[in-house]
Design a protein around this nucleic acid. Structure first.
Lengths: 247, 247
DNA sequence: CCATTTGCTGCACGGTGTGCAGTTCTAGCA
DNA sequence: TGCTAGAACTGCACACCGTGCAGCAAATGG
């Protein structure tokens, strides 16, 4: 059925292909289980049961349960980064305020649509999982940070005069942070990096409270609260905030 | 040694006292285990082992493991509320900006000193734990919210003109929220409640990112970032921010 | 002094992650 | 085409976990 002899030339041998498919199926089953029953539902035995295998068989694909979780985090964080970047890029590049709002709304929307994914990425992912050194998904996290900092950079001319004069040192930040954000932007001052992280925290705060159920006990309109905060954020950057109900 | 007959009149019989002590010891051992080995270390068997008992014995004090966790959350959240309130009250009542900053710094300080407690309260507390309906510690959470909203109320005269005009409905918020904050404050407009929640989120965001290890991979000075954000927050309320380095 | 209540043990059940000996199947060579 | 090395998988074991329950011992209270 297949050219076993020369198969290695065009994308790996049949064995390797089957292996990759099984590995991908493990991940997809794990994600499905997580979506259905929460992060606690990710158990090797459940995955194996679903696939008609034994738990031990998974150890042929992932050295340990935490390795599997780390891979899942990488994938999920990547999908988050894709989502917010797509939302941003659906808005004309000139309208920085709208791009920032689109990013922020997409972030909250993704988090509420994938609460398990949000917990996986930003919280205690799963019983007993230990985040590996250097973070679980450094690449996607840098993408997210770079995206926000890029928006800050686009607004920086308006924003800089409004910022309090705190003296920053470039060494206060991860070197990759400035590099990733500086796509065409010659040299962004460290204060802008700090502002980017602050914006990140500002978006993360309300969304995190909401995902973990702390906000809904206090208000019935978390969306309005979040939107008001994001409008205030845009204003604080010196940008013109659109009207309250743009949609 | 004690008057067993009339003991019930002054604080419970000897049996009840011993029972209360054992119950308290269970909690303290659980907290110690959590501080040493993370939230995952809170297992009934480990607690019992530490106390020279059997796991089953704990069921005489707490109906289920989740009940114990809920009690722990209540205690820990209460200690957080105590800490931030004390820090706020150590500052003269007139200086609202300084009181807010003290609150914010105490919040971050507590979170970094008790990361497990922070996870317990604001994150997935422990493997498989389900937050009971209405939240695990509604009383302490209301205290925390009321504290922030009280600070907003104290600043409201300065702040109101700066706020964007979003129309809020009083029914957007939990009725208890306004009640708890309105200690002598006759009727706080809903916009101030919304602002309080937004401040809560703004403090929570950076601290949460830092506790879960997302901030340190991007910056070496999370304290500076947080402080800058809090100074900007104070300014955005229309208050005079103190100098950058008050201590 | 005795009956009752209470606290606890010992054990069982089903669940978990993790290894390892042994078996089955398949890929690739002769 | 047949054969063999090795990959993939099973079955089982171990040590944990939360949770119940029968039974026992001690403290309590009349």
């Amino acid at each position: 059925m297949d050219d076993s002899g020369t198969a290695e030339r065009r994308g790996g041998t049949r064995r390797a292909r089957l292996r990759a498919e099984t590995s991908a199926e493990i991940k997809s089953v794990a994600l499905r289980l997580m979506a259905e029953g929460g992060p606690d539902a990710i158990t090797l035995r459940a995955i194996a049961r679903e696939m008609g295998m034994t738990a031990g068989a998974i150890y042929g694909y992932y050295a340990t349960r935490d390795d599997l979780i780390t891979t899942l985090i990488r994938d999920v964080y990547g999908s988050l980064a894709d989502t917010v970047e797509a939302a941003r890029d659906a808005v004309p590049a000139q309208d920085t305020a709208a791009r920032l709002l689109a990013w922020a709304e997409a972030f909250r929307g993704w988090a509420l649509a994938n609460p398990e994914g949000f917990r996986l990425v930003y919280g205690d992912p799963v019983p007993g999982y230990q985040v590996p050194e250097g973070g679980a998904a450094p690449e996607a996290e840098r993408r997210a940070c770079a995206g926000i900092i890029g928006l800050v950079a686009a607004a920086w001319n308006h924003t800089e005069p409004l910022e309090p004069h705190v003296t920053w040192d470039p060494s206060d930040f991860d070197p990759h942070l400035a590099d990733a954000a500086a796509d065409g932007l010659p040299d962004l001052p460290p204060a802008a990096l700090a502002l980017g992280l602050r914006l990140w925290g500002r978006m993360h705060g309300l969304v995190s409270l909401e995902v973990y159920g702390h906000l809904r006990t206090q208000t019935r309109a978390p969306d309005k609260v979040y939107r008001a905060e994001m409008l205030a954020l845009v204003t604080s950057l010196g940008l013109d905030a659109p009207d309250a109900a743009p949609r």
